[in-house]
């Protein structure tokens, strides 16, 4: 069994419950508002579309939502020790991880890939191929980010910080300074997938598609496997 509906419901409530869904919703709304403003002021333009979707949607929004959903799927439960009630149930721990991953991927994709597609259609230009290319890249990135950050959530209590360090320092800061870093960046792998679809050289990645695909699969599967291993032998630390 790979999916447990009750675990899924609890996880979904942990990520989106109370006012959290509203705060998560702010990001896509901001993207779409900017897209509308730009479309009205500038008109349809491929260059502008690529700037906005690549620079804001894929570089800022997707990793951020990935961190919130990925670590939020399991981090708080480990943090307040309530995960023991879940672990005490006769549910295989890999199933717990897979279910939580499914929810995290779903939330990340719904809050990032979907708005990217909508924003791409609003911005227009290039027969909307760019919209599909970036939305697909965002969806692919959602899967890898969610798996990676979920694993971080099982490793460290400071998973959010380390996830953000990866997204901001490694991908954004070092990625813009050191070319080699781009080879090891989920964002670039996802862009490689989008590059295949986007036309006119607006979607550019520094990684070749075969390499990117292999790395994406390895990271996603590896992170999920490792998270399941971590959960099998989880020790609960006391409050600091």
């Amino acid at each position: 069994m790979l999916y447990h509906p009750t675990v899924a419901r609890l996880t979904q409530r942990a990520i989106l419950g109370r006012r959290r869904a509203l705060i998560l919703l702010l990001l896509p709304v901001l993207l779409i508002v900017i897209a509308i403003v730009v479309r009205v002021l500038v008109g349809a333009d491929d260059e502008v579309t690529a700037d906005l979707l690549g620079g804001f949607a894929l570089a800022t929004m997707v990793p951020l939502i990935g961190v919130i959903a990925g670590t939020g799927a399991i981090g708080p439960e480990i943090d307040d020790s309530s995960i023991v009630y879940l672990l005490a149930k006769p549910v295989p721990r890999p199933t717990i991880i897979l279910t939580k991953l499914t929810v995290a991927v779903g939330v990340t994709a719904a809050f990032s890939a979907l708005p990217t597609l909508v924003a791409g259609f609003i911005l227009g230009g290039n027969g909307s191929r760019l919209a599909v290319a970036y939305a697909l890249a965002a969806a692919v990135a959602s899967v890898a980010y969610a798996a990676f950050f979920l694993m971080l959530g099982t490793i460290s209590r400071h998973a959010v910080v380390f996830g953000l360090v990866y997204a901001l320092v490694w991908e954004a800061l070092l990625g813009s300074l050191v070319d080699g870093v781009k080879t090891l960046s989920i964002q670039q792998w996802a862009l490689a997938v989008g590059e295949k679809i986007g036309q006119g050289g607006h979607v550019v990645s520094d990684v070749a598609l075969p390499v990117a695909t292999v790395l994406l699969v390895v990271v996603t599967a590896g992170a999920t496997w490792f998270a399941a291993q971590r959960l099998r032998s989880l020790t609960l630390a006391g409050e600091e």
Binding site: L27, L30, L31, I34, V38, D51, L52, G55, F56, A59, T60, M61, L64, L168
Partner: peptide
């Protein structure tokens, strides 16, 4: 980061 990303794009 979100305002920074949005402002940079604009």
């Amino acid at each position: 980061t979100v305002p920074f990303g949005a402002v940079s794009a604009l």
